[in-house]
Design a binder for these strands. Structure first.
Length: 638
RNA sequence: GCCCAUAUAGCUCAGCUGGUAGAGCAUUUCCAUGGUAAGGAAAAGGUCGCGUGUUCAAUUCACGCUGUGGGCACCA
């Protein structure tokens, strides 16, 4: 007699046919209630799937990852049901599960409003209460296409046409409603539970192609229970509180205005943060053997034609026509300018590797819909560098760049870094032999760094393979920042060469690298990572001196001056306000240290320190306090 | 660029169906000189994003533009 083997190794014998409901109920009554779907020899199936041979079965409940995914998938179906009950004539398309929830794309002339969203959600709850039973059928392909065309579901018909010949065309019924779907599904709509919420409506192109119709996408989130849903909503709120656009305004760091969309107006404090980062980088790069240069922001169009940017990147470039009928382009990248510096004067193999760094401000015409605070701008500063070297030097140089990047990320509070290695794309320049060399050199550097890495096959740039450095922030979001690219193309296009040890002229390999990528974007990430509470060495305002009463203003001013002399970013707050008020105000604006002085401090030539996030007080002699702070504001050494 | 939403004082926001605007905070002045997260009072602040139209009358309605937000597409 055949057996069902459960995941714990137990066997359930059966006589004829058996389905998931029966198996679950045989194990326990509670499992019978909780069962969502099952895995049969590793394949996910409906509980109603009937088994007639020896197989391994695992009953899946909401506790399993797959169970939650099915719940979300069913929620997407119920969303589509609700929409079609409320808005007949709306075409359904696809409705997949995504991180934290699901969405469904609809084709309908009239837009869904926020009120519609509420109505739809209520209807969904009605359907869940109705507990419509699920039924699966397999249809003939032609009939299915004919059927969906007949009922006006042209997108569904199109999807069926694309299903591979060897696959079944399965139709799921939930009560009176039905949809083409691969499945599996919950036994009935009631199993979804109540922990879902429609979150937003937006546009999305059919099949993700901007040439196609724009559909209306309704997003929802769905969880096992109300507690999980609330936790998720709370997490969203927390992320919102960290939003760098909000904090940037509150902390008086920068603003944007419509005269120059996507370009930052840095306020003094924001610019101080910017300069601190640059100063820190200058020091690190100098120690790592880089030589800083600076090149023009506007360069003649012909140079961009020669470099290939005009053809490949022209649509993203700002240009400027001059009265003498010349066309200049505002640089979107620093590389061509940097190569011109390399090209000036004769270079010998003895000069290599030559590491030229540049804090270059570049402009790119980004699509208006892509702009997003500091994270996606049209004008930004790259912490760029180009390393000119021989083929044999690639590995060592890549390694030293990787080490530098990791050290710097650690200094800035990012411990969790993921590398993404992208190898040769189909469309590329250069001989395979050189690609082999470049790829293995990069891979070797990755392996020596002992970091986690992923391989993105065929995602490299047309001129060479690359490593992207992805940071994970405090709340688990990933940000692609640094990049290291091997360039086998540009140096020759722009005529770069050096004299080799045998006297021959050779073309150098060029490595492009950026650690922060864009200073602007990186500052946005830093603000969100620290929720505005920057470590003191980065804080644009490190100390505010607060006198208890105006009687002590002079002593406070004296402290302020001494701080400034010691290189501390300080302010003194002489406002006629109570100390409570001032502490609240400066704590909210995230100043790391408040120096408070009153009668006691004047007498003792001391100062009382209050750290951000703590209500402890520490009184030190003024000299000692300044010495301590001076130490803390130094760049970290790792 | 595309879809939807949105734009009111420095900031956060209110203003029902058309009759040119309000609050809190911030600012200024006055009182209070207060020891660790908001003391009290008064004053000052807005061509209601820009443009066109409908109307006796537009912050309010319609259309266009620009910016912003959420997505989609894009991100060399």
């Amino acid at each position: 007699m055949p057996d069902i083997i459960l995941s714990d190794g137990k066997k359930i014998p059966f006589s004829k046919k058996i389905d998931g409901f029966e198996i679950a109920n045989k194990i326990s009554k509670s499992l019978g209630k909780e069962a969502c779907i099952m895995s049969v020899d590793g394949e996910l199936k409906d509980l109603s799937f009937s088994i007639d041979k020896n197989v391994k079965v695992k009953i899946i409940t909401a506790k399993d990852k797959e169970g939650l995914e099915v719940i979300r998938h069913d929620a997407a179906h119920v969303l589509a049901m609700a929409v079609q009950e409320l808005f007949p004539g709306t075409q359904v398309t696809i409705g997949p599960v995504i991180e934290n929830g699901f969405y469904y794309d609809f084709s309908r002339k009239e837009p869904f409003t926020d009120q519609d969203l509420k109505k739809i959600e209520n209807k969904m709850r009605e359907i869940v209460d109705r507990d419509d039973q699920t039924k699966r059928e397999v249809w003939k392909r032609d009939e299915a296409i004919k059927h969906f065309k007949k009922i006006g579901e042209h997108y569904k018909a199109e999807i069926i046409e694309d299903i591979p010949e060897n696959e079944e065309v399965s139709i799921y019924h939930h009560g009176k409603w039905h949809d083409l779907c691969k499945g599996p599904h919950l036994p009935s709509t009631g199993k979804i539970g109540k922990a879902f919420k429609l979150t937003k409506v937006s546009g999305a192109y059919w099949r993700g192609d901007s040439k196609n119709e724009m559909l209306q996408r309704i997003y929802g989130t769905c969880w096992r229970n109300k507690k999980e849903l609330d936790e998720y909503l709370l997490r969203l709120e927390e992320a919102e509180k960290r939003d760098h656009r909000k904090l940037g305004k509150e902390m008086d760091l920068f603003h944007f205005r419509q005269e120059s969309p996507g370009a930052v107006f840095w306020h003094h404090k924001g610019w101080t943060l910017f300069r601190t980062l640059v100063a820190y980088m200058r020091e690190k790069q100098k120690n790592a053997g880089y030589k800083e240069i600076n090149t023009p922001e506007i360069l003649d169009k012909t140079l961009w034609e020669q470099s290939g940017h005009w053809e490949k990147f022209g649509e993203n470039m700002f240009t400027s026509d001059t009265p003498d009928k010349k066309t200049f382009a505002i640089k979107p990248m620093n590389c061509p300018g940097c190569i011109q510096v390399f090209n000036q004067g004769l270079k010998s193999y003895r000069d290599l590797p030559l590491k030229l760094s540049e804090f270059g401000k570049v402009h790119r015409y980004e699509p208006s819909g892509a702009l997003h605070g500091l994270l996606r701008v049209r004008a930004f500063t790259q912490d760029d560098a180009h390393i000119f070297c021989t083929e044999d030097q690639i590995t060592d140089e890549c390694l030293s760049v990787t080490n530098l990047i990791l050290k710097i990320y650690r200094d800035l509070g990012f411990e969790n870094v993921l590398l993404q290695f992208s190898d040769r794309p189909k469309k590329r320049v250069g001989e395979d032999k050189i690609w082999d060399k470049a790829e293995s050199a990069l891979l070797k550097a990755i392996k020596q760094s002992k970091l986690k890495y992923e391989i993105n096959k065929g995602e490299g740039a047309f001129y060479g393979p690359k490593i992207d450095f992805v940071l994970r922030d405090t709340i688990g979001r990933d940000w692609q920042c640094g990049t290291l690219q091997v360039d086998l193309n540009l140096p020759s296009r722009l005529g770069a060469s050096y004299v080799a040890d045998d006297g021959s002229k050779k073309i150098p390999v060029m490595l492009h690298r950026a650690l922060f990528g864009s200073l602007e974007r990186f500052i946005g990430i830093l603000i969100e990572h620290y929720a505005g509470k920057l470590p003191i060495w980065l804080a644009p305002l490190q100390v505010v001196v607060l006198p208890i009463a105006s009687e002590f203003d002079n002593y406070a001013k004296n402290i302020f001056q001494q701080c400034t002399k010691a290189g501390i970013n300080a302010e003194v707050d002489l406002k006629n306000q109570k100390i409570n008020y001032k502490i609240r105000e400066h704590s909210l604006s995230k100043v790391p240290l408040l120096l408070i002085c009153g009668e006691k401090e004047v007498k003792g030539k001391s100062v009382t320190i209050r750290k951000l996030g703590s209500d402890k007080q520490e009184t030190l002699s003024l000299d000692q306090a300044i010495e301590n702070i001076s130490k803390k504001i130094k760049f970290p050494i790792n």
